[in-house]
């Protein structure tokens, strides 16, 4: 945050500069979800048949869109101000819950939907992808999906590299 970007001096009105870590995490989760997709398809197909596989894939899509939307909202509003980012995080939560509700309600009567695998996949993949991502975030002490490749990554955090 440079003084030029925040002439009022109010820290809450300052905007974030440099890379957007939330979007990096979300895109990393999208990449990991491609690995998870076959597991979801086979797992759901084994227990609930073809409808289960389709429902599982749909639930995984909901989870991924949810992550990307959350990150995008944070990324865009963080460029405006920290206060706007806080508002986006809170109202974004409501918005995304509403969208998930709509996404499920719109298809619940469809012939290819099986609600049990859909619900289970929603929870399991959401938490599973997060824990998977957390391993790498923890491993690099902050930065998403940027598993330390050498000593230089740890010694120069990306925010410094971007500056």
């Amino acid at each position: 945050m440079s003084p030029e970007s925040n002439p009022t001096g109010n820290a809450l009105l300052g905007a974030m500069e440099g890379p957007a870590p939330a979007m990096e995490i979300a895109l990393d989760i999208v990449k990991r979800s491609l690995w998870v997709l076959p597991v979801v398809l086979f797992g759901c197909a084994a227990f609930w048949g073809m409808n289960g596989a389709l429902s599982g894939a749909y639930a995984l899509g909901i989870v991924v869109v949810n992550f990307v939307l959350a990150a995008w909202l944070l990324q865009v509003t963080a460029r405006i101000s920290f206060a706007a980012m806080a508002g986006a995080a809170l109202f974004g939560y409501l918005l995304r819950l509403g969208l998930i509700f709509l996404a499920v309600m719109l298809v619940r009567s469809a012939s290819w939907v099986s609600l049990v695998p859909l619900g289970l996949t929603l929870i399991v993949t959401h938490l599973g992808l997060l824990f998977w991502e957390l391993r790498y975030v923890s491993g690099s002490l902050a930065y998403p999906g940027l598993k330390p490749k050498g000593t230089s990554t740890l010694s120069t955090p990306s925010i410094e590299r971007a500056a």
Binding site: P21, A70, L74, A89, L127, V137, A142
Partner: peptide, 14 residues
């Protein structure tokens, strides 16, 4: 801020 936002995003998701 980047580090905090990372933690915040994961916290929100959890």
């Amino acid at each position: 801020a980047g580090q905090v936002q990372t933690t915040m995003f994961l916290g929100i998701a959890f």
